[in-house]
Write a protein that binds this DNA or RNA. Structure first.
Length: 107
DNA sequence: TGGTTGACCCGAG
DNA sequence: ACTCGGGCCAACC
């Protein structure tokens, strides 16, 4: 058996992010759970931070359906722009209705 | 070597 | 709906 390294987990998470189709979103927790590490949701954010355009990072939102803030930088506005361009809609509170847009992985 | 931070989540009250 | 506390751990001082 091969040992499960941090790099392995990261690669697996990123692979799952790539599976999220346009017009749908997934939460950090969803990705962590699907990767087989239910409570490692923070690591999804860590992984996405260093990745570039090879991964649709904008389809990942927090458990409230909101765009997670990164403090500085206006990339969160870009994220909303990209999602709306794919047909994802936000309510008046700036949240995405997860019951409608949440991605459910199909076998 | 050790403490703090952070693109998070969840249960309990 | 909100607060509080615990969990998790790579990255960064």
């Amino acid at each position: 058996m091969e040992s499960v390294t941090a790099a392995t987990i990261r690669a697996r998470m990123l692979a799952l992010v790539c599976e999220v189709p346009a017009g749908r979103v997934a939460t950090y927790g969803d990705i962590a759970r699907l990767a087989g590490f239910p409570r490692h949701s923070r690591q999804v954010g860590v992984a996405l931070r260093q990745v570039g355009s090879e991964v649709p990072w904008h389809r990942i939102v927090n458990h409230e359906g909101r765009i997670s803030r990164r403090g500085l930088d206006g990339n969160d506005e870009l994220q909303r722009y990209l999602l709306e361009a794919e047909g994802v809609m936000f309510d008046a509170e700036g949240r995405i209705p997860l019951n409608r847009f949440r991605w459910m992985k199909t076998l």
